[in-house]
Each structure stands twice: as C-alpha cells, then as structure tokens.
C-alpha cells in the first residue's frame, strides 16, 4: 500500500536489462494461451476459491456461498465456510493445491502472497480477481461490489443495506463528547505487546467507533515497550476475544509491565470483540462498528441495527 505513493524518481534510470529480462515472453514455454484464460471471469454456476476473510463473507452475503470450493485459513465466518477445504495461510499460497480444486474463479485479497506464488497462479491462466482489502467507511461496499462484479452478480442491494446500517451510527457517534484513547493489542507476545499503528484495520475500526488510536508515527502492528505504553496513556485496551482468552484474561493483560502503568489498567478497562466482526470490514462492518462503539461508550444511546442475513452465523 505504501508503494502507491506517487514517486517518480529514477523511473527513467530503470535498469533496462533487468526490466527486459522480466518482460521477455517467458513461458508457459511451449504452451499456447489456455482455453480457460479466454473464458469470462465469472462463475454463474462455477467453482470459486476465495482467499481473504472479508471477501469470503461477501461471497456468502451475495448468496454465492454454494459455489465456494475452498477458503483460506482466515475465512472462518459464516459457519458454512468452516466446512470448506482450507488452502492454508493466505501469505503462503499453494499454487498446485489451488489448481487441484479446478476453480473457475479465484477471488484473492490483495494481501495474499507470496508474490511469487501469485505469479505462478497467474501463469496457469486461472481466472483470478484480486480485490483490495480496505478498512474504514465505504470499504465493505467496495468489497461487496468487487466480489459481485467477479461473480457476475448484482451487489447493490446488499451494499446499500450495509451503507445504510453504517450511516445509522454516524449521528449518535458524532454527538459523543468523550473520545477514549483505545490501544489495540494484537497479542501480548511475552511482555512486548504487539499494538496497532497507523494504516491498520484496527486503527480504522477504533476511529469509526468513536475512539482515538494513541499510536502515531508508525504503521502496521509492532511491539511496544513499557515506556512508550506509559506515554501513550490509553484509557481502554482493545483485543480480539480469542487473543484475550489466550493471554489469560484481563488480569494477565494488566500484569504485563508495558500495560500495567496505563490509565486503562487503573480503571481495569480491557474490552474484547470477535476479530472478523471488528476488523474484517466485510458485510458485517456496520454491526462490528456498533458492537465496538457499544464497548467503548457504554453509556451512549446507540440505535439497534436490523438483523441481516449475513450477520447470522
């Protein structure tokens, strides 16, 4: 994502030989364009492999779940997804494993990798659709529309409902005076908790739910020292529910030296939420936003959101 910055330096000085080497018409050596490469990338009644938790939720939300033949290890919602074959961790894609499922379409989060394995998959001519894995307002609709286009299915009704649910929370959250400082802890990691910097899905989730991420100045999830935790002074520690369980509950969290000195520890405020609901920014984005806002602002009057088919497991 950082690569998107509009830098132009040195593009002229691009090592021509290296570029030419990669640009050569390298194989599939003696293999001509494969027939499936010319097939349109849609699977009205086809076999779909989906890699990326939020994208898998989108496929189910659009009613195309029955076409899925495999998922990645992060796709754990809805329950029907768990019954599908698992191609493993999305940053360690297995080219032959995916080809062995004879998919008519591979829907791929842009976060999937490694780039080499994606290049191999591309070279096989399998129809692939890479979709952005954004966070924040509008991200869920973008994913739904992307998946809908890939599947040849109208995503507008679902996207509009998600957008409407999201918008129901805008006014009540804007009216809140308190903006708690919320530190998202990915894992306690034996004393140096991994916390969310800028540009993370957790950062976007906290902002959308009316909190403030006190971490500024670096991106991604990184370990935090005890001293910087004290200067960040979070009012609330936020975790994924399974991570909090694994860590051993609130007592263990505040026994960590880095977190023991925070205002959150004095108030005993650690909250936890399902990771896919809170950080996925898929069809459940609005409901995740409400659930997190309710945890961060226990006294606020938030409107209940309607039950949707895609929020039920």
């Amino acid at each position: 994502m950082t690569g998107q910055r509009p830098h132009g330096i040195g593009r002229r000085g691009l090592p021509a030989a290296a570029a030419a080497w990669t640009a050569l018409p390298w194989p599939p050596l003696p293999w001509p364009p494969l027939p499936w490469a010319t097939r349109p990338a849609r699977a009205a009644a086809g076999r779909v492999v989906c890699i990326g938790a939020a994208l898998t939720e989108c496929v189910f939300a659009l009613g195309e779940g029955p076409h899925l033949v495999a998922r990645d290890s992060s796709s754990r919602f809805p329950a029907a997804a768990l019954a599908l074959p698992d191609i493993g961790y999305m940053r360690a894609l297995p080219p032959e494993g995916i080809a062995s499922l004879s998919p008519d379409l591979v829907i791929l989060s842009e976060e999937a990798g490694p780039a080499e394995a994606v290049a191999v998959l591309r070279a096989t001519g399998l129809p692939m659709r890479t979709l952005p894995d954004g966070a924040g307002p509008g991200a869920a609709e973008a994913k739904l529309r992307g998946v809908g286009a890939a599947l040849g299915r109208d995503a507008e009704p679902v996207a509009r409902q998600v957008a409407a649910d999201w918008a129901m929370l805008d006014a009540p959250l804007a009216g809140l005076r308190a903006r708690p400082r919320v530190l998202f802890v990915l894992s306690l990691a034996r004393g140096a908790p991994l916390v969310s910097g800028e540009g993370t899905h957790a950062d976007a989730a906290i902002a959308a739910a009316g909190g403030v991420n006190p971490v500024r100045g670096w991106r991604g999830y990184r370990p935090l020292s005890a001293e910087s935790a004290a200067t960040l002074a979070p009012d609330v520690i936020l975790m994924m529910d399974f991570a909090l369980q694994e860590a051993g509950g609130a007592a263990a969290v505040f026994a960590t030296p880095a977190l023991a000195v925070t205002p959150a520890a004095r108030a005993g405020r650690v909250v936890a939420l399902d990771g896919g609901l809170m950080l996925g920014f898929g069809p459940r984005a609005a409901h995740g936003r409400r659930a997190l806002a309710a945890l961060l602002h226990p006294d606020a009057a938030l409107p209940p959101l309607p039950e949707r088919p895609w929020t039920a497991a």
Partner: peptide
C-alpha cells in the same frame, strides 16, 4: 511489522511454491 515477521518465518522454512520458468 507483524505481517513482515510472518513472511520472514515462512521464507526461512523454505518453499518451492514460487518456482517459475
């Protein structure tokens, strides 16, 4: 960051999944 660390872990385990012509 977390993702790079996981990429590093997988790279050090060795893989030929990226083999291309």
């Amino acid at each position: 960051d977390e993702r790079q660390a996981r990429d590093i872990t997988f790279w050090t385990l060795g893989s030929l999944a990226g083999a291309r012509w």
